[in-house]
Simulated scan of single mutants.
Amino acid sequence: MSLKGKIPPEVKIQAVEDYLAIRKGSTQIREELGIRLSTFQAWLRKYQTEGPAGLHPKKHVTSYPSSLKLAAVEDYMGGGGSLDAMCRKYGISSHAVLQQWITLYNQGHREFKTRRAREETDMAEKEKLSQEQKLQAVLYCLEHQLDYRRTSEQYKITYQQIYSWVKKYQEQGEAGLLDRRGRRRPPSEYSEEEKAAAKLRQLEAENRRLQMENDFLKKLNELEGRR
């Protein structure tokens, strides 16, 4: 039977300890308390990083140094582990916090601008890539399961650049890779063959994205089934 309203810290602690002691499975706990899997995972993560105190209301907002934020984001982007693993490793309070840092990182927020990143940006500004080179980089990234870090090193571009190009390509196809600052042939002037090829590449990119999402969900279900 699910609990109504806010769940007391003592109940959260008991639920986590029951799970860790293998007295109850996560499914049973979630059904009894009427909570989602993500909610229970957040409780578990806080308990493992901060102890029982982590499940009590905090009187102040946790502050993290910029160096830790950058290390956590780059570790995750480099394939160091899942969101959950990174939160545990760096003592981050929730997935949402880390995801917000990742968003800021991808947007090139100044807090995540290291000296190396600034040097990479300067280098990229000096060596502009053609649309064809951008397309090659995007397709390489898609073929390697959206490994932005590997692609940036392979093509000597910044992480933010390839992230932006892939996003534009998935939304607009090759037209999204056009340099709007100069006069380029607009998509309306493409031949039928070029339009068909661009559409096909866009569909292939979308299929790859959906396949990765399906693989992730299958893996999550497998892990949950082992509990």
Rank of each mutant, 00 (worst) to 15 (best):
Y163L: 07
Y47R: 02
I7W: 09
C141E: 03
L129W: 02
A117Q: 13
S130E: 07
E127W: 14
E204K: 01
V97Q: 10
L98H: 03
M123Y: 13
L146C: 04
K58C: 05
D179H: 08
R149N: 01
K219Y: 08
V138K: 11
L220H: 06
G54E: 09
N221Y: 00
E206Q: 05
K89D: 00
K89E: 08
S164P: 03
S152K: 07
D122S: 04
G34N: 05
L203C: 12
K24N: 10
Y105N: 03
E111N: 13
F40H: 13
K59W: 06
R183P: 03
H144S: 10
G225K: 11
V16L: 05
T49Y: 14
A117F: 15
I92P: 01
M1V: 07
R118S: 10
G54V: 09
V138D: 01
L98E: 04
L37V: 11
D147R: 05
D122Y: 00
I7T: 13
G80Y: 06
M86D: 09
S67V: 11
D147A: 13
D122M: 06
T62W: 05
R149A: 07
D147E: 04
Q28M: 09
K156D: 12
A72T: 09
D122N: 07
E125V: 08
E127V: 12
A137C: 12
P9S: 08
S152P: 04
D179I: 03
G108R: 02
K128G: 00
E153G: 02
G25A: 03
E192G: 01
R88N: 12
L220S: 10
K195S: 15
K4G: 06
L83C: 14
K59E: 03
V11N: 05
H144L: 02
K46N: 15
K156V: 06
E125Y: 04
E213T: 14
G80R: 06
K156C: 13
Q170T: 12
E120N: 13
G54M: 13
G182K: 14
T151I: 01
S66I: 15
I7V: 09
L223M: 12
S152E: 01
Q170R: 09
Q160S: 15
A205V: 00
R209E: 06
G5A: 04
Q131A: 04
T114K: 07
L217F: 07
E127A: 12
L20H: 05
S38M: 10
T103H: 04
E119K: 15
Q99I: 04
L98F: 01
E132F: 03
D18E: 11
A42L: 05
K128N: 05
K218E: 06
A205D: 00
K168M: 03
Y105T: 01
G51A: 02
M212V: 00
Y64V: 05
S26E: 04
L217A: 13
G173F: 01
H144W: 06
E119M: 10
G173D: 11
